[in-house]
């Protein structure tokens, strides 16, 4: 049973990551290879909140979301002036920089040794969220909240304006909208919410190191979104379920982990290639990447 709960918690974490990424990739057509950096920043900021500032869980979540959004704001303005490939490159560069810093700034992040013994967060100082059940509840609540918020955002005038950016920037400019500021909103909101995933991950696993937030992870998050589908709510959720459940299925079939790890990557890779060719909007998505 615990095993299934563990899987559900992982799915919840990935739902938060993919749903947030969808706001950027699916709604605004901004392809980012830097999402793992914000995920990682969220995780490290939450460690700061939990271990140094001794915050309870809700302030810690807010703290890491806000700090990460502020960081993303620093990146957003310069990189959003760039178009197409250049934007992708800027996010890639940023991803690599953050990783290098997390890895090498040993006095603060402990570098490759990682930070262990992250304490169980408490809720209002009343009860401790430690066992798998409490994480199941916490992660489900957070995932549901993130889905709800993004549902509301996508169906609001703001979401409509983002769809406008995706469809036709020129036209949006001609009706007097500030396209850059819309993109900045999408960028910071996306990274703020992805930080919540990072915070959840850090407190659940109780140990983080930079390799969980490297370029491979960024590609993995992006792959999950693109496989599940872009531009609506259900696509990213399906993507999160797919990428978390597939390895477990391979394990159930009896493949040893050493083969399974490569095999599932190969399956992801092939899925992406085939989807891009035959169904670029993903399994359940609404809009293809432009």
């Amino acid at each position: 049973m615990d095993y299934i709960f563990h899987i559900i918690i992982l799915i919840n974490i990935y739902i938060i990551l993919t749903t947030s990424t969808n706001l950027l990739v699916g709604m605004t057509n901004l392809l980012s290879l830097g999402q793992a950096a914000f995920y990682g920043l969220g995780a490290y900021f939450s460690v700061l909140a939990l271990m140094v500032l001794h915050l309870t869980i809700i302030p810690a979540l807010l703290f890491s979301a806000i700090c990460t959004s502020l960081m993303s704001l620093l990146i957003a303005y310069p990189s959003l002036r760039l178009k197409g490939d250049y934007f992708v490159l800027a996010t890639l560069g940023f991803q690599l920089i953050i990783y290098t810093i997390l890895y090498n700034w040993i006095s603060v992040t402990k570098g490759p040794f990682g930070i262990s013994g992250i304490p169980s967060p408490s809720l209002f100082g009343l009860l401790y969220i430690s066992g798998i059940y409490s994480f199941l509840v916490l992660s489900s609540v957070l995932a549901a909240m993130v889905i709800y918020i993004f549902y509301k955002l996508i169906h609001s005038p703001f979401g409509r304006a983002l769809k406008g950016v995706r469809d036709d920037e020129l036209s949006l400019l001609s009706i007097g909208r500030n396209v850059t500021s819309l993109k900045i909103w999408a960028f910071t909101l996306s990274s703020g919410f992805i930080a919540i995933g990072g915070c959840l991950y850090a407190s659940y696993v109780a140990y983080i190191d930079p390799t969980s937030f490297n370029l491979d992870e960024a590609i993995f998050i992006l792959a999950a979104v693109l496989i599940g589908g872009t531009g609506n709510i259900k696509g990213p959720i399906i993507g999160a379920v797919f990428v978390v459940v597939l390895p477990e299925l391979l394990r159930l079939v009896g493949l040893p982990d050493s083969i399974g790890a490569n095999l599932r990557q190969i399956i992801y890779g092939l899925t992406i290639i085939l989807l891009m060719r035959f169904r670029p909007q993903g399994i359940a998505g609404e809009y293809a990447l432009k």
Partner: peptide
């Protein structure tokens, strides 16, 4: 006539495979 972003993603797919 797929977009360049789609090419980029497919390229990542090849790389992974």
């Amino acid at each position: 006539e797929s977009s360049l972003n789609i090419m980029l993603i497919s390229s990542i797919g090849i790389m992974i495979v």
